[in-house]
Design a protein around this nucleic acid. Structure first.
Length: 886
RNA sequence: GGGGGGUUAGCUCAGCGGUAGAGCUCCUGCUUUACACGCAGGUGGUCGCAGGUUCGAUCCCUGCACCCCCCACCA
């Protein structure tokens, strides 16, 4: 065997692909090569076509799970695809400080050491969080590198970096000056465990079986008093009124009277309020607790009621609760219920209602009256709605548009202050005289009265307040930095639909308001990863760690699996079986490459295939390759990663490996064909391999780069090599038809052997009749006789009408005859019967259709014609099969 | 209370007007000069139920059943 110069050049030692495919042996190496070569940084001149994404910054709470890997894989596929298409690609990495979530992680860590953060003090605590953040960031970064994400690490950002913090502060001050940020005492969602306010979105409602308590209040002059219903009886201690509907006859006798609050003995007015009270609902009387219910608070404002806070920030009853002070709210509830029963004032019935829980720690949320900062959101929502209406921003899949509109149109003010230590401190300063200053720079003295010192607000901002600025704060905004001018607005945002409101909607509002531009033009909302149909959770133990999966199957296989699982649905199902399947595919490609490279014998990268005559299989595979390239590009442009993956998978495995490689072996080995044919074929073979590698690179970057290196001797350059588009390559429909017919014939021969129960090598005689239904095709079959003989292991193919003794059938429009010398006892009779029955059934159905005048009349002519042809085909097959039976 | 999605082969999912596909599983053969993580065949589906529209429905419409998700100030 001649030496392959590609494999033997001195500097090419080890260029041969090892026999076994071991992804772990090269994956990390290629990542370093790409990174060191600056491939992840945008190249090319400003102004040329660019593609920009920002990563949804993962929380620095721990490590990434497979759901993150899924989103990042999608982004990396887009990034690599666009990069190979020649665009200046920038994908910005970073992490989110995730205020409440990260603080919780640290609190738990401290708790394990028996430390309460309050013992530590704010400064020491925050120091520890920073240390943790640095650790978590490293872990996350390593995970994304291992996955192959082509992120530009020179531009990595963190939401609490100095310049990003500056952006936050700038935005806060601007909104404050515009009157869109205000401070006030309102009833907010309060988590007694986290001891902070949370926004409406951070409250998770769950249907819960509980009780409805009906409490009778004494009313002077009314014998039966007034009965109110509540699910939280302990709040009655804070009642400052009862409310009735002004037009409800049931409660008219209570109007203007005074009730006595049980236990407490406080006299409270009975007021009419049409807004709070629903005429039809319950007893018609409502207890009013302005400090612990948002509706009651609003009612209190309308009627100038006082607010009595009876439950404190830690969930324990306050001094206002009298004898219950210091008790946990639920213990207080039990005791109050007991007391009211004792006093014969209470009836209890089972009741199912929705109870709010803290998104982070699952503690039951307590509505709580406190001083908070809010964003007046409606003025920001309008432009954000219009940007989607007018197509400036589009959602993929489009169905999210409606959800977005629904939420935006019913949007409520956003509580942005958090009573936490980890996060952006609110830039509001109060002097000794109570003047409040909000400013970008820390003031040294009060601008109003000149007094000093000033105390900064101790609260921090909701994490999402900084995340909403991410698409522009990462570029240094509000400074007009070169990066901001060059890369903003971004192009595509990829994220899970679960943060559509938390993040996406707010980025759109913030982007439009502050930069005057939509932060991105396309939002791809993907589903959430499920394992075996269940949501991933630590308690269920079904969490897949991306690193473990990568260790077992290789990063390429994990990525390919995730891409293949991508669908437009709300859930993305990932299974181990899929991972193994992808790994098998990677191995398949590896072996196909080994075979191809070992067959090249010095063939260089084909620059131009047009100068040599191409065989029918050559033209077929090149046509299929171009088709696959077009499909992959089309599917990627439609965010159909599953379809794109399936297209390239089917091409590589079923067309290239199962088809072309097998067809070509006799010529390659020298058993058949001319030297010229061999030369030509090698060029085609290499072209197919290289284009497959390119098409597959966005999905399986490591393996493809490894093979590319061995095939071309240009290490680390596939990542920036042109992506095949298949444009301008005409479909070789004649070659496709002939080759597909060959494959169908070969399958039929194998089938026939199976039916006869003979071995795969049993000599079979094959007749292909020139008098076939498709004569044109039949006339071309003699030219591919060697292929038929080789693939079907058929000693002789005869181009004449089959003898009566042969088994007859019609395949792909060709009338054929088959005969085996020695059939075993098991004949194909049963299968032929089955085939005939199927033909009969279909024939019946179709001919009934053809007899229907309105079908002929109304169906498109093409459909009618197709049906007619199919009928003819069935007739011929039926005739052939029946005739072939003895 | 409002809104959205789902129900297709044993499993996980594509398809969404012209009588169904993939991967995995399963069955039967096979050391065919890349690959047993393979090759070649094959089994397997009244496309949730009932109506309607249509020449024709898994695909469109209506209703029902079961499942999932989101939103909501459900005393």
């Amino acid at each position: 065997m001649p030496e392959n110069p590609l494999l033997t050049e001195p500097d090419d030692t080890g260029r041969k692909l090892p026999k076994t495919f071991e992804p772990g042996s090269f994956e990390e190496r290629w990542y370093s090569v790409w990174e060191n070569d600056g491939r992840f940084q945008p190249s090319g001149v400003p102004g040329s076509p660019r593609f920009v994404m920002v990563i949804p910054p993962p929380n620095v709470t721990g490590k990434l799970h497979i759901g993150h890997a899924y989103g990042r894989t999608i982004e990396d596929i887009l990034a690599r695809w666009k990069r190979m298409l020649g665009m200046r690609v920038l994908w910005v990495p970073g992490t989110d400080h995730a205020g409440i979530a990260t603080q919780m992680v640290l609190e738990r860590q401290l708790a394990r050491q028996g430390i309460d953060r309050r013992e530590l003090g704010r400064e020491k605590f925050v120091e520890r969080v920073w240390a943790w953040k640095s650790e978590a960031k490293d872990t996350i970064q390593a995970q994304m590198k291992r996955l192959g994400c082509s992120l530009d690490w020179t531009r990595e950002r963190f939401t609490m970096d100095p310049d990003l913090s500056r952006a936050v502060r700038h935005v806060f001050v601007k909104l404050y000056e515009e009157g869109l940020i205000y401070r006030g005492r309102y009833v907010v969602n309060w988590c007694p465990r986290c001891e902070t306010a949370v926004s409406d979105l951070e409250v998770v409602h769950r249907e819960t079986d509980g009780s409805l308590y009906k409490i009778r209040y004494d009313v002077a002059g009314v014998r039966d008093g007034a009965t109110v219903a509540t699910t939280r009886p302990e709040t009655m201690l804070g009642d400052t009124a009862l409310a009735i509907h002004p037009e409800d006859p049931r409660t008219a006798n209570l109007a203007g009277r005074t009730a006595t609050l049980p236990i407490v003995g406080r006299e409270i007015p009975i007021l009419a309020d049409a807004i709070l009270v629903n005429r039809e609902f319950g007893t018609g009387v409502v207890k009013v607790t302005p400090a612990h219910d948002a509706n009651d608070f609003a009612m209190g404002q309308r009627h100038d009621l006082s607010s009595v806070v009876v439950i404190g920030p830690n969930g324990k009853m306050t001094e206002e609760a009298g004898e219950y002070a210091g008790l946990d709210r639920f213990e207080a509830r039990r005791r109050i219920v007991a007391r009211l029963i004792e006093e014969n004032r209470l009836s209890v019935e089972p009741y199912r209602n929705s109870v709010g829980h803290c998104q982070r720690c699952d503690t039951v949320i307590e509505p709580y009256l406190s001083e908070q900062w809010f964003v007046k959101i409606a003025p920001l929502a309008g432009p954000a709605i219009r940007a989607v209406e007018d197509g400036t921003i589009r959602f993929v899949p489009e169905s999210w548009t409606k959800t977005y509109f629904e939420w935006m149109k019913n949007i409520h003010d956003w509580c942005i202050s958090r009573q936490l230590w980890w996060g952006h401190r609110i830039p509001a300063f109060t002097c000794l005289n109570g003047h409040v200053t909000v400013s970008e720079e820390d003031p040294s003295a009060c601008p109003t009265c000149g007094s000093a010192p000033l105390a900064q607000d101790t609260d921090v901002l909701d994490t999402w307040f900084s995340s909403q600025l991410w698409p522009f704060s990462v570029f240094g905004w509000p400074e007009k930095t070169p990066d901001f001018l060059d890369f903003y607005p971004t192009d595509v945002l990829v994220t899970g639909y679960d943060i559509l409101f938390f993040w996406v909607a707010r980025m759109i509002m913030a982007g439009l308001h502050f930069t005057g531009q939509a932060p991105f033009s396309t939002v791809h909302l993907h589903g959430l990863v499920r394992i075996g149909g269940e949501k991933m959770s630590k308690t269920k133990g079904n969490v897949i760690d991306p690193l473990e999966a990568i260790a077992e199957f290789g990063a390429d296989a994990v990525r390919f699996t995730l891409a293949s699982a991508a669908s437009s649905g709300a859930t993305v199902s990932v299974e181990r079986g899929r991972m193994a399947g992808s790994r098998n595919f990677a191995t398949k490609l590896w072996n196909a490459a080994r075979f191809t490279l070992s067959s090249l014998e010095g063939q260089k990268v084909p620059e131009d295939l047009g100068t040599r005559p191409l065989s029918l299989p050559d033209r077929w595979i090149l046509s299929r390759l171009a088709g696959a390239a077009r499909d992959v590009n089309r599917h990627l442009s439609e965010f159909r990663f599953d379809e794109a993956a399936a297209s390239i998978y089917a091409f590589v495995w079923h067309d290239l490996c199962d088809g072309y490689l097998e067809m070509v072996k006799p010529v390659l080995s020298g058993r058949e064909g001319t030297d010229e044919a061999r030369e030509s074929l090698r060029g085609v073979l290499l072209r197919c391999l290289l284009d497959s590698l390119a098409l597959l690179h966005p999905f399986m970057p490591f393996l493809t780069e490894e093979i590319w290196d061995k095939a071309t001797g240009r290490p680390g350059t596939l990542i920036v090599s042109p992506f095949p588009t298949g444009e301008g390559v005409p479909t070789a429909s004649d070659a496709e038809r002939v080759i597909e017919a060959v494959r169908a014939l070969v399958t039929r021969v194998r089938n026939y052997r199976g039916e006869r129960g003979t071995t795969p090598t049993e000599p079979v005689e094959l007749w292909v009749s020139p008098e076939s239904p498709d004569r044109e095709l039949a006339a071309r079959i003699p030219s591919v006789a060697p292929l038929l003989r080789h693939l079907g292991r058929i000693p002789e193919v005869l181009f004449e009408a089959p003898p009566a003794s042969a088994f007859r059938d019609v395949v792909a429009g060709l009338s054929i005859g088959l005969r085996v010398k020695e059939a075993s006892a098991e004949s194909g009779g049963a299968r032929t019967d089955k085939a005939l029955a199927e033909i009969e059934a279909e024939y019946e159905g179709l001919s009934a259709k053809m007899r229907n005048p309105s079908f002929i009349d109304k169906a498109p002519p093409a459909v009618v014609e197709k049906t007619r042809r199919r009928l003819t085909e069935l007739e011929e097959r039926r005739a052939a099969l029946s005739a072939g039976r003895s």
